[in-house]
Design a protein around this nucleic acid. Sequence first.
DNA 1: GAGCACTGC
Length: 626
Amino acid sequence: MNGAIIPAKQNSLEEQRRQLPIAQGRDALIQEIRDNDVIVLVGETGSGKTTQVPQYLLESGVAGEGVIAVTQPRRVAATSLAARVAAEKNVQLGGLVGYSVRFDESSTEATRIKYVTDGMLVRELLSDPLLSRYSAVIVDEAHERTLRTDILMANLKTIQRSRNQPVDRKGKGRATALNPLKIIIMSATLDAEKFSKFYDNAKFSTSQPDYVDAALRTFYQIHIDQSPGDVLIFLPGQEDIESLEKSITMYANRLPQECMGVTVCPLYAALPPTQQAKIFSATSKGIRKCILATNIAETSITIPGVKYVIDTGKCKEKRYIARSVGTGFDTLLTRDITKSSAMQRAGRAGREGPGLCFRLYTEESFKAMPISAEPEIRRCTLTSSLLQLKCMGQNLEQLDFMDKPEQDTIISALATLHLLSAVDDKKALTHLGRRMALFPLEPTLARSLLAATEFGCTREMLDILSILSASSKVFYDSSEEREAALETRRKFRHSSGDHMTVLNVVRSYDEIAASESKAGQRDWCQKQYLNFRCLTEAMDIRKQLREACEKNGIDWQLSCGDNEQPVLKSLVRGLVQNAAFLQPDGSYKQIMGPSIVKIHPGSSLCDKKVPAIVYDELVRVILRRV
DNA sequence: GAGCACTGC
């Protein structure tokens, strides 16, 4: 859909921290490194930051063209970290990612991330006192304060002073440093301030313990030490699942012969059922199954044979942020689970015998967890419920609720209904509003449907709305197959945007459904990278909506054929609130709100620079975990 | 430059 994104930069870091239980994100870190020559990064040792931060530097380009050095006090750490990062980036060790330790080197001209022992870098000072090949030096395990680390840190300080000196090239405008150096000191908590002082009060930032990495290590601890039995790991979302799947598989391939094998099964709602089914198939003897699941495995799906549970203590939660001015937006944020979730997760271990649960959080964090989740009335849009209550002659503001909704949420719901002409200036229900409530649709979509009766395109509108109100997305894929999916779906793309693209999909599906069996339809969907589950659900919804039309004297067969104008006009009637105009810099500005929004990269309108857009979904981007 | 789960109508 025309998912739009509010860029993170819009909001102050402080504001984001407040909304984000896990503090530091990838983008925020990159920004901090861009803004500061020295950063002291505090966090637990051996966590993912040693492998991730260099990759962030490389990917974002903040470290320029030079080599990114990561120093380690010990040889074995340098070589094994290099191997792991090379594997994560899917490159040959010694290419893009390499290492250099005494007696052993694996690096080439192409190497951009180089893991080295601090002694090696100190030695390099002899031949290259300014370390000019390096654009960034990351000093890891700085808290160990080995002699060579200290010598290195002292030198880095003076090197940076001379390299980052602005050079005013005559007549060439602004003075800039020719070959600046970035320094990142990674340390355990206690010494952070001392490091910061040493580098002229350098900024320091704290990274949260990396639960994905902790889960990886816990899994292998179980795998090596514990008796046979499957392992279930709870993670917040697809992204973490994909990343952990990669690292577990990578280590599984290097296990000693006598060790049990490992098979990894990802599990989340959006995963096609065929792949979900893998969790139920029995593993052969000598293979340990490791299921990586979202909280879908907490209640909805019970997995047989699980003996060990690893609980990261994290989940995702969708939250609507109301704005009394303009439109609100949804955020999907990673947060701590509740006590009841924690119990539920633990209970998934050993349902058929003794089991063990490994919680990757402290007793204190457990005690700090809320007992149960906040009720939806405090977190969701109330537009639809408000309309319904009005139809029942009730007033949401006067109802005696167990938990009262936020005032802003009510105000924004009322504003939306007013804009859709479902209520009048006195907040009273209109005839139109009553008709909107006849359909099991969000009020915005119901408004578009009623507009379609005027513009003569109910048939097309029902095709689109049924997809929009299905609970899963039509276009959904893992990050691995994203490119292929994009290419295959190109034929559905419509120059007028994603809603017309969706219409093309439904029309094609209708043709297939007319001649193919259910299995044939499923096959077709799979080949087109379309979500079969979404389409079948949408077809049920469409049938129901058509019936609702018939019942209420609306002709659902009105078609505008190949003329897209009536469809677009009708959509706008419902989505007025979500209109935005192109800005000179290529971003979009809401007409009814203050925000700058961006078109989702998966949209057919992305990079098209059309003068105006309407969207049906606005998502606030949350910074990623370090 | 990228999607937690569920439910009802």
